[in-house]
C-alpha cells in the first residue's frame, strides 16, 4: 500500500475512513457477503414459517366456515343440535384442533406473538363458529376463557381475536334470525312468538330472551367498549361496528315487519330486507 493522497496529490493524514477502506480492499467484500448469507438463511426460515402458518390459518378458516353453514341449517335455539349436524361439525372441530396442534411448534415462545397476525384470521373465524355453535345450543355468549380452552394452550387467543369473532357472530345471528323468520318458524325469535300471541298489543317490549333482545344487548355491550384511538388497537373495529349495527337493525326491521304486517302475511312471505344481506367475514 502506498501513501493515500487527496485529489491534489497531497498525502492525506490518517483519516479513519481511509483505514476502513484499506481494510475493505485487503479483504474484498467477503465479510459482507457471508454476513448477508447468514441474514438470508434467517429470513428464509422466517418466511417459510410464516407461510406454513398462513396455510394452516386458511384451512382453519375454511373448516370454520363450513361449520357455520351447517349451523345455519339449524332452526331452533337453546336445545341440542340435530344429531346429523352435530356429528358433522364435531368432525370439523376435530380437524381444526389437529390443525392447531400442527401450528403449536411454529408458535413457541417468542414466535407466538411474532406470527399472531398470520394465525389471527383463522382464530377469528374459529371463534365465530365456536360462539355461534355455543349460542345456538345455550343462547348465551361464549367467554374468552372458554374459547381459549378449545385450542391448545400454546396458541394465543388474543382479546382482539375474541372480540372480532364476536362481531362476526352478530352477522351470523342476523342471518339466522332472518332465515328463521322467512321460513315461517317464528319460534326461533322469542319476539315474534310474543308478538304473534299478543298481537293486539303490537309491542316489542316483551322481547327479552329472543335473538332480537340478545343482539341489542350485544350491540349495547360493543358500543359501551371504549378503545383509545391513539394506539391503533383493533384496527378493523370501526368497520365491524358498522356492519354489526346494520345487522342488528336488519333484525329489528324484520321483527317490526312481523308485528305490523304479521296478520296480513300470506304463507311464504319473507321479510323485506331490500338492503343486501351483509355478513362480516374478513
Amino acid at each position: 500500500m502506498g501513501t493515500k493522497r487527496d485529489w491534489e496529490g497531497q498525502p492525506l493524514d490518517l483519516n479513519p475512513k481511509d483505514t476502513i477502506m484499506a481494510e475493505a480492499e485487503i479483504e474484498p467484500a467477503r465479510p459482507i457477503l457471508s454476513i448477508f448469507e447468514n441474514f438470508r438463511d434467517e429470513l428464509d426460515e422466517h418466511h417459510d414459517r410464516r407461510e406454513r402458518i398462513i396455510k394452516k390459518s386458511r384451512d382453519i378458516t375454511a373448516l370454520s366456515k363450513k361449520i357455520i353453514f351447517a349451523l345455519q341449517r339449524v332452526r331452533a335455539t337453546n336445545q341440542p343440535l340435530p344429531p346429523k349436524i352435530a356429528q358433522e361439525n364435531q368432525t370439523r372441530f376435530d380437524q381444526i384442533h389437529a390443525l392447531f396442534e400442527e401450528v403449536v411448534p411454529e408458535q413457541l415462545g417468542i414466535n407466538g406473538w411474532r406470527y399472531q397476525r398470520q394465525i389471527s384470521g383463522g382464530i377469528q373465524e374459529f371463534i365465530e363458529a365456536l360462539s355461534f355453535d355455543h349460542y345456538l345450543r345455550t343462547q348465551t355468549l361464549i367467554t374468552h376463557a372458554e374459547c381459549s380452552a378449545r385450542v391448545p394452550p400454546q396458541i394465543l387467543v388474543s382479546e382482539e381475536d375474541y372480540l372480532m369473532g364476536l362481531y362476526d357472530l352478530t352477522g351470523e345471528m342476523m342471518r339466522f334470525a332472518v332465515l328463521s323468520l322467512s321460513s315461517g318458524n317464528a319460534s326461533a325469535t322469542q319476539l315474534t312468538e310474543n308478538s304473534a300471541s299478543e298481537r293486539e298489543k303490537s309491542t316489542v317490549a316483551s322481547s327479552q330472551g329472543g335473538i332480537v333482545g340478545d343482539l341489542r344487548a350485544i350491540r349495547a355491550g360493543f358500543e359501551a367498549l371504549s378503545v383509545p384511538q391513539r394506539h391503533y388497537m383493533f384496527r378493523d373495529m370501526a368497520k365491524k361496528l358498522d356492519v354489526m349495527q346494520n345487522s342488528v337493525e336488519k333484525v329489528e326491521r324484520a321483527a317490526y315487519g312481523i308485528v305490523v304486517r304479521g296478520s296480513e302475511r300470506p304463507s311464504g312471505w319473507t321479510p323485506d330486507l331490500s338492503a343486501a344481506v351483509e355478513v362480516g367475514s374478513y
Partner: peptide, 26 residues
C-alpha cells in the same frame, strides 16, 4: 341472555393494554 360481564372483562383487558402502550409510547 347476554352476560354483560363479558364486555366488562373485555374493557378491563383493553384498559390494561392501554396502560402498557401508554407507558411504552411515552
Amino acid at each position: 341472555m347476554i352476560d354483560q360481564r363479558i364486555f366488562e372483562n373485555l374493557q378491563t383487558k383493553i384498559d390494561e393494554e392501554t396502560t402498557v402502550r401508554d407507558e411504552l409510547h411515552e
